[in-house]
């Protein structure tokens, strides 16, 4: 039963991940990523980690990805432009992908060869009570650090998006448009980009 569920959701996750990279439209990519996140949450449930699964749906799918979708809709992004300058990146990406894939198979092979150790069937590890207890006793310092990190992120986000002086910003955009038109006329794609 658990094996069947694992292969179902693993297949779903991989399919969604491939579609995330394949699609040029950012909103399609976002929907695919949501698919990956939800499948992983289901796998976490089969791994007896219900708290992490719920938090995964709540934080990743419910907050971070809503923000991403919001930004995509707000900026009204078009399709990705084909890569015309850094063409060698395809080779680099493909090579790196192959190396990582080989490494994955090596890990699979190596871990499978280890004589079977008994699965620890302690189902209570993932319960909220145990996670909360560990979080506020043994791992209190990391939790505090993460809290400060989040505070810094909030301040940073506000400062980044704050509009300083409206006229200046429009000027910048005008310049940018003029620069691009000029570059297009000359036909110099290096300046145009």
């Amino acid at each position: 039963m658990v094996t069947a569920l694992f292969f179902l959701f693993a297949g779903l996750a991989i399919a969604c991940a491939i579609s995330l990279v394949y699609h040029k439209n950012p909103l399609y990519s976002a929907v695919s990523l949501i698919g990956v996140l939800v499948s992983l949450a289901c796998i976490y449930v089969t791994l007896a980690a219900p708290f992490i699964a719920a938090v995964q749906v709540l934080i990743y799918a419910g907050a971070i990805m809503v923000l991403v979708v919001f930004v995509i809709m707000l900026l009204n992004l078009e399709e990705d432009r084909p890569l015309n300058r850094l063409r060698y990146l395809y080779a680099v990406g493909g090579g790196l992908g192959l190396i990582l894939l080989a490494q994955t198979f090596f890990i699979f092979y190596a871990v499978s060869r280890v004589p079977k150790q008994p699965v620890n069937v302690d189902e209570t590890v993932g319960e909220t009570l145990n996670i909360g207890r560990a979080m506020y006793t043994e791992y209190l310092l990391p939790v505090e650090i993460v809290g400060i990190l989040l505070l810094m992120a909030i301040i940073g986000g506000v400062i980044l998006v704050r509009r300083l002086a409206q006229p200046e910003l429009t000027l910048v955009v005008d310049n940018e448009l003029a620069r691009r038109n000029e570059a297009e006329e000359i036909g110099d794609y290096r300046i145009g980009l």
Binding site: F51, A61, V66, V69
Partner: peptide, 16 residues
């Protein structure tokens, strides 16, 4: 075990 979080999570996915 995490009923409250489940409900919150699912309703927050509903916005999609």
């Amino acid at each position: 075990d995490v009923g409250v979080l489940f409900v919150l999570g699912i309703t927050s996915v509903g916005v999609y």
